[in-house]
Amino acid sequence: MTHDRIYDTFRRRTRRPVGGIGLGAIVAGVGLGFVAAGLAARRPRSANPVKRSRNKREALRLGRDGAAIMGASVLFDSALEHLRGDFRRDEMYVAPLTGATAMAAALAEPRRRKRGRVLEVTHLSSVGIGIAGMGFHLRNISRRPGGISWNNLFYAAPLGAPGALIMSGLFGMVTHRMAQAEGYEHLHGRELACLTALALVAESGEVALLHFRGAFHDKAMYLPVTLPPLAAAGLMAQAIYPHRHFRRPLTLLLRAVEGLGYVGTGFHALGVARNSAGWRNWRQTTLAGPPMPAPISFAGLGKTGRAALDLLAVGEDQPRQNKERAAI
């Protein structure tokens, strides 16, 4: 009854049929994500604690959290941006839904055996949907007057945004694989370092575009376009030529990038407050102001970056560990 009425109102307002269902699905997705999060919180203890170094457990945890944060960022950011776009196409519900499943799947890691397939498929589908999303966004831009113009890059569907979904899927995959296999830590570490570096660069690119749109009106807006590329350079160097050297400052830098994610959210909240009537006018300002859910993805990338470094350390320690084990 009530649902019908809401559905009806929504359709009359927007002339779009799916409103109620789509929004319901997103809410369900968020719920699913949190259930998964609750389950996951217990996982590492129950999952085969033996034979794993502390570093590896830490890496798995960081990788999992990183991927989940990326998924959550996609969930909330795309929900917000697509709400701004009025969910005028049914496909627009897919992005937040996939964000929710990506988050849930990431949190369900690390697993060693059963149901691993489902998770793998979920990670892969995040990647696929991310790529499709980029296609949609590109099409949206190219159909507007001006084509690939600054006005469309600034204000039409953001080209880079679905990339976060791709990254979330890829991080999920890597976490999945490193949970399943032992002895390949060094390789996985290099992979993850490379992936995180690429993600940091892409993310900074997106931030650069949007902060440029905001004319860097606050000097703090330069931080997310300087720190992450630095971290990315460091990680890339580690991926190509893993070396213990510089790893310590790099870890600090990655922690700073992670912190940027949290601080950035706060800054964006202040940014919303600086719009006309601030939070009192939240229905306008949360959509028109800086996107609240966006900065947190840096927290995810900071974590996966540290996971990569941990894995490298595990890989490098392994011969020694094996020797120790043999001695016992």
Binding site: R84, G85, D86, R88, S276, N281, R283, Q284, L287
Partner: peptide, 11 residues
């Protein structure tokens, strides 16, 4: 103080 967010046709 509230203006508008959605400026395009159909929105």
């Amino acid at each position: 103080p509230r203006g508008y967010v959605r400026l395009k046709v159909g929105q």
